[in-house]
């Protein structure tokens, strides 16, 4: 059974059909890239899967069960982790405290008034930080980190609930090329190791063609192609969007 199944999903803003009748399925452990020009509807699709936006039509099934209408926090508890296009962490906490807070939330301890947050889940949090190469900066405030490091912390937060599905919206945007490859390699290793399905958007074609098991192409809200790297490279519609008619390849 597929981990995530999207059925005829649509969402409009005013007159703009941001996502238009999109269907696909994602298998456990699969790394899938979703590409498309800016404004294609990628973020909107993520926002519907993680519960921030309500679709106009269609269905979203996680392990065969519809998660339509659930708020983001419930979808997180249904083992879905998410990173944002603009990395989102807690600036007034240290890197370690960020992850500890996420772990405390997973353990449903956020109503606990009298325990000391700094003492909870330390080892597990450090473990996660090691996985994303942030252990050496554990005690630094998140507000002063370089942007690439913030993205890494965010990945650790998204992994806190041992997700079965990871949604990553432009995980490497704003990073140097070497850093991009490092982060996506880490992500792939974690995903393969834990059998996590990953859906990510990405503008760097090196990353997309080098790391994704499968690739989907979105254009103006429509899913216009789906396949492995070879199929996508040779797909005429994709070639037209990305390489045709004087259009430059995106980044």
């Amino acid at each position: 059974m597929s981990l995530l199944r999207i059925e005829h999903l649509s969402k409009s803003f005013g007159g703009v059909k941001a996502v238009n009748d999109v269907s696909f399925a994602l298998a456990p452990g699969e790394m899938r890239a979703m590409i498309g020009p800016n404004g294609a509807g990628k973020t909107t699709l993520f926002n519907m899967v993680d519960g921030q936006l309500r679709p106009d039509a269609g269905n979203i099934l996680l392990n065969g069960k519809s998660i339509l209408g659930l708020p983001p926090r419930a979808i997180f508890r249904a083992d879905v982790g998410r990173t944002f296009q603009i990395a989102a962490t807690f600036a007034s906490m240290t890197v370690l405290q960020n992850v500890q807070t996420a772990l405390a939330s997973c353990a449903r301890q956020t109503t606990s008034l009298f325990r000391r947050a700094d003492d909870l889940h330390r080892a597990e949090a450090m473990d996660l930080l090691r996985q994303v190469n942030m252990a050496d900066q554990a005690e630094r405030p998140c507000g002063v980190l370089a942007y690439g490091d913030v993205k890494r912390v965010e990945l650790a937060l998204a992994l806190a609930n041992k997700p079965k599905l990871l949604l990553m919206d432009e995980p490497t945007a704003g990073m140097a090329p070497a850093e991009r490859i490092a982060l996506i390699t880490q992500t792939r290793d974690i995903a393969k190791h834990r059998n996590v399905g990953v859906l990510f958007t990405e503008h760097s074609m090196d990353v997309v063609f080098g790391f994704a098991d499968r690739i989907m192409v979105l254009s103006r809200g429509r899913l216009i192609a789906e396949g492995d790297a070879e199929e996508i490279r040779n797909n005429p519609k994709v070639r037209q969007i990305y390489f045709g008619a004087g259009a430059e390849p995106v980044r």
Binding site: D50, T89, T101, A117, N161
Partner: peptide
């Protein structure tokens, strides 16, 4: 200094992220 206090600061610092890690 409790997990509750951390969740409160989390919700202030970044509401989106707080909801996305299961904080109501």
């Amino acid at each position: 200094l409790s997990p509750f206090g951390a969740a409160l600061r989390a919700a202030r610092d970044n509401p989106l992220r707080a909801e996305a890690i299961g904080i109501d």
